[in-house]
Design a protein around this nucleic acid. Structure first.
Lengths: 319, 319
DNA sequence: TCTTTTTAAGAAAACGTTTGAAATGTTTTT
DNA sequence: AAAAACATTTCAAACGTTTTCTTAAAAAGA
């Protein structure tokens, strides 16, 4: 029996008779034949693999994203490989070089802060790999992106807080250098406006995300003359730092400053003092959408490719 | 210039002159040449990849293991692919089939509870893949394994508790069907003995790991006539369930029952009520050791292969 | 200068699979 | 009965790299 016959039989080619197909298949089982994927990938110049690049696996947000991606990938019989950049732009470039030589079919990436990978990512696209950003954007919006709709999230959070009686709602923002920080600050402002609350920049504080800096920001907030009663926080883990800080330094304030943060994490279930509520950014769904974009592009002609920019609605989850 | 010359030049073969090597390398950069790994893997019948199979990425313990593996793998220029079995034996078998066809060079696996994969793993070894178990063992000890030394951990925990004045130390054990549960129960007994504390089976309770069952076990413990003042818990996440249960149902007992669990997690940092201490099983080190075993075996002749069984010492981490 | 040795580069085969074309065998049509 | 159509199988080339073997050129020795 010729190799080509076997190949065609196993792949259900219709130029092979039913009888042969069955004979081949049963022999394959009997002889424990397992196709050599490396040879197949090589032949097809496809790896049946999409790569996920994230900052850190200890961040449960990204784990949920990955689970979403895996769900779609396994439906499509695709493999997923995961790399951590640790938010190190150099490491990120290394990772992408590696992905290029692997000829992965798609890359889903949450770029490192201060990413230097734009050119590499462009090159990846030139080579036919579908690149999809998640959560964090890059200048010029030239890549597919799936992220949560911060404006929707902020609006739901602020509206909820107003209903609870809050009128003085602060914002702890991320580093001004980050796209996401600006975006969420803007969302915060817009949400205040929609709720007829005046914007007051004295109760918007920035943190570089270190616990120390966050502590100082909170201290400053607590020293403003009209102390805020609630705060919208840039990111879930940051909310936890805020709570930790309050617990240590201002335990009396703990109940007087209600916290809502972007992002809801499974680990919240174990916390005593947790944010009042969280903006659930649907990480699993982000992963699924990103994976779907990848597969759509992988299966399409390169000519018809268009850039997709998806912002997913959030929900407000009481903790 | 012949492909063979290029190949040799890029791989630093010494039958190529220095001049040509440099010429090739500079042209490679200029033309953006990136070797096709798929072709290479195919040619070598090696994938330069080790696979990690774990139950769940949301368990930070395993994330730390993975980070350890990645550390060693990247030193060796190896790729790591991760799969989640979700403790589903069927899914696990599927995953391993996939790994077989990928011809991965090594598999590091924390087998699913009730794993049905022994035969598949044997087959994997026959095919030349190095199989290393982590944390969870399989009957007959035919595979390499890296795990923590429960006896060492339990001894340190019980000794510490005794020094704090505890004489009545309970044990919340995992399902009796699990190898690990038996192991740790045995370690608990041995540690009591070493500390001259009598073993009392009325204060050893089993849980199937569901929150409900754990609650019942704790309730039963609290109802024993000589109520324990401390408890050694099977696993980190289980400690959290215990604490959550006490908080809800017996808040007064929260400070009266000191808890030490197997496993220390990064998320503990955010908790108010946390176990008194944790047995740090050094997940990162487990990953590193497992990866080292893999590479040692990958680079060795199959003839000289021996089974390695490593039990790593623990430390006791105050929380 | 001629032979021998050394060095460097090229040629060809191989890895396992898939693919389209060619060959074989069978059936239908004329 | 010959030709045409069809069904099924096999052949041969290809994918990009590495490796072994060969060849060409240069250097060394006589």
């Amino acid at each position: 029996m010729a190799p080509s016959t076997v190949s065609k039989a196993l792949n259900g080619h219709n130029s092979i008779s039913q009888i042969t197909k069955e004979r081949v298949k049963s022999l394959a089982v009997e002889w424990n034949y397992i196709p050599n994927e490396a040879a197949r990938f090589f032949k097809h110049n496809k790896s049946q693999t999409i790569a996920v690049v994230i900052p850190d696996l200890l961040d449960q947000f990204y784990v949920l994203v990955i689970k979403g991606i895996e769900k779609i990938a396994s439906k499509n019989n695709y493999n997923v490989i995961i790399s951590e950049s640790n938010d190190d732009p150099g490491k990120e470039v290394e990772i992408i070089d590696n992905l290029i030589s692997k000829r992965v079919d798609g890359v889903i990436i949450s770029v490192a802060r201060n990413s230097k990978s734009v050119e590499k990512l462009k090159r990846l696209e030139q080579l036919g790999t579908c690149v999809t950003l998640i959560c964090r954007s890059l200048p010029n919006n030239i890549f597919n992106i799936v992220a949560s709709d911060s404006e929707d999230g902020a609006l739901k959070a602020i509206t909820f807080l107003k209903k609870r009686g809050h009128r003085r709602i602060a914002h702890l923002m991320g580093p001004k250098g980050f796209q996401a920080s600006k975006q969420r600050l803007h969302a915060y402002k817009k949400a205040l406006l929609a709720n007829n609350i005046a914007y007051d920049e004295t109760i918007v504080k920035e943190t570089n995300l270190s616990a120390k800096d966050t502590g100082e920001a909170i201290t400053a907030l607590l020293k403003t003359k009209d102390v805020p009663t609630a705060i919208l926080v840039f990111k879930s883990y940051l909310s936890l730092d805020v709570i930790n800080f309050l617990k240590k330094k201002y335990p009396d304030k703990l109940k007087k400053l209600e916290i809502i943060g972007f992002g809801k994490l499974p680990l919240f279930e174990f916390l005593d003092n947790k944010p009042l509520a969280s903006i659930d950014e649907k990480p699993g769904l982000i992963g699924e959408k990103a994976a779907e974009i990848s597969f759509k592009n992988i299966n399409e002609d390169t000519e018809t490719k268009t850039v997709e920019q998806i912002r997913l609605k959030c929900t407000l989850a009481k903790n």
